[in-house]
Amino acid sequence: MKKGLDYINEWDAFVQAENEAAFHELYCHYFKYLSFIALKKGFPVNKVKDNINDLFLCLWEKKGQLNNVVNFHNYIVSSFLRKLYRKENLEIDESMFVETVPGLQTYPSVESQYIAQHTQDDLSRILKIFVEKLPDKQKQMIYQKFYLGLSYKEISETNSISINTVYNTIYKALEKLKIEIGKENLSAFSLALALLSLLCLIYFQKIS
């Protein structure tokens, strides 16, 4: 599992050789890491995404001058927090923060890689196409719910919608997925079953 400072090679490749692939790797990691931190703090989702891209645009433009950054992880997270809070009129002029964010799973975990390898191609393909076709809002919420593990309440706050709308949106998305899997006539009976109970689960939670 890779986290924060394990990306030192990517950082070096980016800073010293302006390697775009390394920049992409860093982006993929920190996009999730930073959005987790900020969404947990209740910042609106659009502001969070804008600030992450502002930060990476800065990094890209300053890449030649980043050689003297001692701890890049500190640097990235503190620059991000500064950007995020500046607009809230909150002063943070120094870098200090937690390296280990409790609650954020580092992906891809060993387990999820294992699962991906042992899943039928059919299912991976269906999932890929399915997610591609999802409207942005639904994609966003599935990401927040199932990847970042935010609670329904947190999702409703960060997207400024009601908890009910969050339930419904996710429910609808999963229902679509069930139909897609059904269409393909997958023999993965247990998967369909799993999905069914997932649907019920959301449904019941909504009424309870």
Binding site: C28, K32, Y107, P108, E111, S112, I115, A116, T119, L123, S124, L127, K128, V131, E132, L134, K139, Q140, I142, Y143, F146, Y147, L177, L191, A194, L195, L198
Partner: peptide, 13 residues
């Protein structure tokens, strides 16, 4: 299924 869906969505977002 949850993990696969989560990973795929995260990657696309």
């Amino acid at each position: 299924l949850i993990i696969l869906l989560a990973n795929e969505t995260a990657a696309q977002v």
